[in-house]
Design a protein around this nucleic acid. Sequence first.
RNA 1: CGAGUUGACCAGACAAUCGCUGGCUAGUUUACGUAAGUAUUUCUAGCGGGAGGAAAGUCCGGGCUCCAAUGAGCAGGGUGCCAGGUAACGCCUGGGCGGCGCAAGCCGACGACAAGUGCAGCAGAGAGAAGACCGCCGAUGACUUCUUAGGAAGCACAGGUAAGGCUGAAAGGGUGCGGUAAGAGCGCACCGGAUUGCUGGUAACAGUAAUUGCAGGGUAAACUCCACCCGGAGCAAGACCAAAUAGGGUUUCAUGACUAUUUUAAUAGUAUAAGCGUGGCUCGCGUGGAAACCGGGUAGGUUGCUUGAGCCUUAAAGUGAUUUAAGGCCUAGACGAAUGAUUGUUCACGACAAAACCCGGCUUAUCGGUCAACUCAUUAA
Length: 111
Amino acid sequence: MTPGHFQAVFKKPLKFGSRHFTLLITPTHLPEDSSKSNRLGLAIAKKRVKLAVQRNRIKRIVRESFRLNQHDLPAIDMVVMVKSGIDQLDNKEINKELAKIWRKIIQRHKN
RNA sequence: CGAGUUGACCAGACAAUCGCUGGCUAGUUUACGUAAGUAUUUCUAGCGGGAGGAAAGUCCGGGCUCCAAUGAGCAGGGUGCCAGGUAACGCCUGGGCGGCGCAAGCCGACGACAAGUGCAGCAGAGAGAAGACCGCCGAUGACUUCUUAGGAAGCACAGGUAAGGCUGAAAGGGUGCGGUAAGAGCGCACCGGAUUGCUGGUAACAGUAAUUGCAGGGUAAACUCCACCCGGAGCAAGACCAAAUAGGGUUUCAUGACUAUUUUAAUAGUAUAAGCGUGGCUCGCGUGGAAACCGGGUAGGUUGCUUGAGCCUUAAAGUGAUUUAAGGCCUAGACGAAUGAUUGUUCACGACAAAACCCGGCUUAUCGGUCAACUCAUUAA
């Protein structure tokens, strides 16, 4: 996603929260309706996660999880934001929490 | 074998599956083109590459880039034993001096306070060319008593005294002997200091001799003085390409103004903002349209961007930092930002922490391990 896309998401978001994540979501506005149109943006503030090593780790895990689940998700743009304290979690816990969020989104989409 | 010092190195390993990033090769796709082909297009496959010793803090120094430049000075800032190394340094090496350690070794902003100015709480008698609180003395002078008339004893009044005590971080060289009423560098010896000379050393400095009774102590990360160094800003530097919109310039066309001709609608000519309020000055309003090209330039893109004071091996010079020569090697280059995830096996159960223009240092963080040299202790020969 480019900065323009980020602005679009921030303008009219649908919020999903969990203990350590906040997701902002809008339906994609791509003119050509392709199958892989859901896109991911990461906004991990230095204020929330201090060390560069930890920030990179979280980004990787979120990307990985997104990659594995993207085919089940509806056509959306989303920005993943992060709350403080997430650097205390290990990889397994983060994966669990993300899986929960994906399920939530899919449920919402159906309804 | 134990305790330790210094230097160098490593930073879990292996396998399977699924991914990320940019490079090369092959194919594919897109754009332009009649085609050959061109391209910094899309996607796929294969191959090989892909964070650190500190990438960190951003504390110094340099390269590179732009700006300014003829040189010098002032201001401001920095450095501060000596010599060497280096592109340069506040770094490194070697040496000196001082301190710590049994030792290997480690630590030190380590110029100048007998240029000037300033500062020093409490305590204490006294804190800077000092000071008499306790103490010591009271020779000399005063007073009292005695007297053999020379003096003797007392008193602690004048006064002398920096040995001792007390205070303090610090009390105006130290120790000893002489000396004295008691004392005092007052005199002497040794130690220390200062000055001058000589010797060794490139130098810092060290050694030594003579002279000098010896001194106004501390503090310069206090002002200051002395010596040396420093132009400013930074890759968001800078260079190139360049959409939309607005605006600038040039050319052409159209329109409008005036004049002439005539078929009253055209042609030719003139001027290029001439126009209107308003006849003039002044003032105000107005000064338009289309196309092409040009230039500046925003978004955006490309570049800068990794071949470099580079790394490895060997040899030579040097105590060493380092330098020189020969041979070999190419080892991340992203930009919403790449090195991961899962599972299994294994071990000593994995710390601190991730490039962002590039180097040289310093500082700080750090689980543990390997190697080399050296020191101490114990035992044996």
